[in-house]
Design a protein around this nucleic acid. Structure first.
Lengths: 125, 125
DNA sequence: TGAGTATTGATAACGCGCTTTCAAGAGCAT
DNA sequence: ATGCTCTTGAAAGCGCGTTATCAATACTCA
């Protein structure tokens, strides 16, 4: 028989952290938000639940150059990310301004693209 | 007095590795290429010399999401990078097809951008 | 309510990229 | 060629993000 999945306060708090945030969170950020809801959540539990949520495709990983992986809830429209050089937070930028017809070398096939913006966010100015 | 800089076979082989490659190399890749020229080069020497070359701005670091840092010779025209999902190599893609006028949230200031292409390179198809 | 077992917290351990250590080797000025 | 000292190789060490360990806790179902 399959192992049964249980609801726990920690799991709920971690899911809520991602739902409340309108931007991709690092495990550390998710921990901080979850702890405002449930007093004691450990970083190990955050990592465990992130992995579960990624496996069931409720979360998707967002990899940023030179940064640790962030996670955001799945199912959003195509968008890109803005990385604040001051506070390190990653924000979502709506739309895709990329005309995906860059000239590739012969024989190359493109299957996807990522576009990152860098700068200073409103809170840091 | 300032410490004197010496020319060595290893240093020359590492520089040549980057000159020969028309794409950004990881330290491991640079090691492989350098070893075809000088029998014994250690990875420590590759890292040491990469750091020296970055400090004197002969090399510039290229950070790829989820990958270790690559390095390419400085002074090239504005371009972006293609990451092969099969072999992991990073290639250069000429030109910048990005109309940088994405609508940012209010108060955000953009200072730069990065554009990555993903797919399969000619050698892997 | 109580039994059975999935989940948690605290912490040790891991992997990987990178740096440091130090004795041996080798440029460079003389 | 000689000597000074910068550079190298091999391996240990480090930092950080992440995972494993294991006893204690707490869901869920009967």
């Amino acid at each position: 028989m399959a192992i049964q999945i249980r609801q726990t306060r920690q799991k709920e708090a971690i899911r809520n952290a991602f739902l409340k945030a309108d931007r991709p969170l690092s495990p550390e950020e998710a921990l901080g938000t979850a702890q405002t809801e449930v007093e004691a959540v450990s970083i190990a539990t955050v990592y465990r639940n992130i992995n579960l949520l990624v496996a069931e495709q409720w979360l998707i990983p967002v990899e940023i150059p030179g940064e640790s992986t962030r996670y955001e809830v799945a199912g959003k429209e195509h968008h890109h990310h803005f990385h604040c050089n001051d506070c390190g937070k990653v924000y979502e930028v709506e739309g895709c301004a990329v005309p995906v017809k860059t000239k590739l070398p012969k024989g190359f096939r493109m299957t996807g693209h990522e576009f990152f913006l860098y700068g200073t966010c409103a809170a840091c100015r």
